[in-house]
Amino acid sequence: MLELTNLDVFYGGIHAIRAVNLRVNEGEFVALIGANGAGKTTLLRTISGLKRPGRGSLRFNGAELSTLPPEKIVALGISHCPEGRHVWNHMTVRENLMLGAYARRGSRSLPKDLKRIYAIFPKLEERQRQTAGTLSGGEQQMLAVGRALMGAPKLLLLDEPSLGLAPVVVQELARVFSRINLEGTSILLVEQNATMALRLASRTYVLETGSVVKEGTSADLVSDPSIRDAYLGGQSLRTGAAR
């Protein structure tokens, strides 16, 4: 469904993505993990058209994305839930969600879709007339995910949805992602929380300074000692801290 081949991305002289090959199959749940500055956000921004690639190709269901503007890419069925939420603070929860469906405005199914989001995140329904800026961080993250889902995407790009959230909320989001995926949406999840990513995704890519250094089924990667040391080392600490 999504296929990146030999992708290079630059910021001026900085080579942020180096010859990356990556694919997401129809209905698949794929994770991308890597340290700070590895290039994960850059990769997602390139897929959704916010950043132009230097070289290489990005194909989505046969269409070449590299020259399309973001609004055309959204229309093809890719929703990107950006790092740091980026909700519209001065607009209400409901307005935020309804704009999520901007690319298919006028569609008959919008009221039904909104109900579905409210069913997934009941908190958002309670707060639907509140402006987004007054929500808690976790609620804002739910709103950002809900807004992306309102686009009824075929492929959902998630950039560090667990960042800064309490473990309970992370668990809740994890359940939501699995469910959405089971209902047929393909997901590319970017995470630093490798434990969560590996648990959810069927396949995982590991990015280091712009290059894919490992890829495989999540099961294989979990048992890979180098991954253990580099990315899951904090596991016991993390769960320890949560208690």
Binding site: S48, G49, L50, P70, E71, V74, A75, S79, H80, P82, H86, V87, W88, N89, H90, M91, E95, M98, L99, G100, A101, Y102, A103, R147, A148, G151
Partner: peptide, 17 residues
Amino acid sequence: NAMRASFQDKDAASLVG
């Protein structure tokens, strides 16, 4: 609403199309 959204957060506006 799209106008208001675009000036509040341009990237987020692009990302919803």
